[in-house]
C-alpha cells in the first residue's frame, strides 16, 4: 500500500463515517456509540499480528496485554450493543414473554 493510496483510504473512510452517522435519531445515540465502540475492536487483528511477531519477553507481555484488551473491546462491545438494540421494538411488533 503506497502512502498516497493510504491517504485516499483515510479521506474516504472519514467521509463514510460522517455520512453514515449524520442522520441518526437521538434515541439511538447510546447504542450507536456502543456499536462504533465495537467496530474499533478490529484493533484485535493488529494486536494479534504484533504479538505473533514478538521476540523479547517484554514484547510478548505487552503484546499479550494488547490482545487481551482488544478481545475485551470486541467481545464486550458486541454484547452490550446487542443487548441494548435487542430491546428496541415498535408497538406493532409482539413483545417477548416475560417483559410483563
Amino acid at each position: 500500500m503506497t502512502g498516497i493510496i493510504a491517504l485516499y483510504i483515510f479521506m474516504l473512510a472519514a467521509f463514510t463515517g460522517y455520512e453514515v452517522i449524520a442522520k441518526v435519531p437521538v434515541i439511538l445515540h447510546t447504542p450507536l456509540m456502543s456499536g462504533s465502540n465495537f467496530v474499533h475492536g478490529i484493533v484485535l487483528v493488529g494486536a494479534m499480528v504484533a504479538l505473533g511477531g514478538a521476540h523479547t519477553p517484554l514484547e510478548k507481555i505487552i503484546g499479550s496485554i494488547g490482545v487481551f484488551m482488544a478481545a475485551g473491546n470486541a467481545a464486550g462491545g458486541y454484547v452490550v450493543t446487542e443487548r441494548m438494540l435487542e430491546m428496541f421494538k415498535s408497538s406493532g411488533s409482539k413483545r417477548k414473554p416475560g417483559a410483563h
Binding site: 472519514a14 463515517g17 445515540h29 478490529i42
Partner: peptide, 19 residues
Amino acid sequence: QNAAMIIAGTVVGSAGTLL
C-alpha cells in the same frame, strides 16, 4: 499496513467526532 484497521478506525474516528 492493515486496511481493515485503517478503514474501521477512521470510520469510527469521524463518526465518533460527529456523535
